[in-house]
Amino acid sequence: MSNDVVELRVHGAASASAAQVLNVSQVEQVAGDRSGGFYRPRRRCSCRSGERVTEAYRWGDLPAGSVVRTLTLVFLLPFMLSNLAIWMRPANPGSDAMVRSLCRLLALTLTALYVLAFAGVALDLIAWKCMGPSRCLAGRTWLSWLGGQPVGLRLAVLAVVPAVAIGLLWRASTRPREMFDAFRAPADEVSRPPTPS
């Protein structure tokens, strides 16, 4: 086994502490934040198992966030999984470029699907079909101001909806990155695997 092998332990729904998952008394955080992070045994404790580095991922506080945070994670889940697919593939140098290209094509397809869904609802269903008959606008005062306008103006105004959806998706995706970038590991390099004794 090489020093590149990392055993990652993840707790279940019981939300165990990182020390319980690693079965040691002292741990230190090497990445993430207080809601979800990666932990390793402290260097001074003798808890190495051969040449394998053992880490714990603690996610117990992630579901305890606000409704906005939960919805953000739900909407970002397909994009997170498509980004993760690049790193979870079997190691094969011969097909590396092809697999990366397919994973990026999948991510681009998901993004296009997201944008087209918002564009289809805003432009086709609302601006084109719903604004014509007056029965569709009955009881919807938030749409009635646009009802008597020409079709081109309705389409132009409601074309803002897909742009706003892209902006909200971009903003939601940068917030977790900012939190992880703000984390600073302890002074000694804990992210490097310990050398075997």
Rank of each mutant, 00 (worst) to 15 (best):
V160W: 06
S134D: 11
V121W: 08
V151W: 07
V161D: 00
A172D: 07
R135D: 09
C136G: 08
L143P: 09
Q149L: 15
R175F: 10
L168G: 01
A159G: 10
C136L: 02
L123A: 13
A117E: 02
L169R: 06
V161H: 01
G148V: 08
A165V: 00
M131L: 10
S144E: 15
A119C: 07
P133M: 02
G120K: 09
S173Q: 01
C136I: 07
R177K: 10
K129V: 14
L137Q: 10
S134A: 13
G147H: 02
V160Y: 03
A156N: 10
L169S: 05
M131D: 07
M179K: 13
V160N: 07
P150D: 08
G147P: 05
L158M: 15
P133N: 04
L137F: 01
L153P: 11
G139C: 11
L169F: 05
L168H: 01
F118H: 15
I126T: 09
L146N: 00
C136Y: 11
W170G: 03
R135S: 12
G167S: 02
L168S: 00
L169Q: 07
R154T: 12
V121S: 07
L158E: 08
S134P: 09
E178C: 04
R177G: 05
R135Y: 13
A127P: 14
A165Y: 01
A122T: 11
A163I: 14
A172N: 03
L153K: 10
G120D: 09
L125W: 10
